[in-house]
Amino acid sequence: MELMNIEGTPKTPTVVMNPNTGVIDIKGRSIPENSIEFYRPVVEWLDEYIKNPQPNTVVNVQLEYFNTSSSKCILDVFKKLEVLKKNQKDVVINWYYEEDDEDMLEAGEDYESIIKVPFKMIQIVD
């Protein structure tokens, strides 16, 4: 499997997914009008990865902004990770939020209550 590296833009996040280390980074902002198109290759990559995953998968999500169009796609990404968990693999989602950014913390907690994967809420302090 190949490493996937999508460079960020003012509307879309940087996504790096490494099949050899099991580390997935999603960073930046996610506000495209059509998120389904942007996230399609990410979800497809995960479909492949979960067939032959690392024993430990670490997902780092550090978003400055995301729109509601992205929120469903991010949920779809997380649902793929649930499959890993179901198959007895270790997986953790590190959800980063800026100090005092309650909206972003709450967004992480929303996902945590829907998705059966352990979350870690990590505050970024300047």
Binding site: N34, I36, N67, T68, S69, S71, K72, L75, D110, I114
Partner: peptide
């Protein structure tokens, strides 16, 4: 978020 299918168009 968890129950509605999103359209290609918007955020559901």
């Amino acid at each position: 978020l968890n129950n509605q299918t999103f359209s290609e168009k918007g955020g559901g």
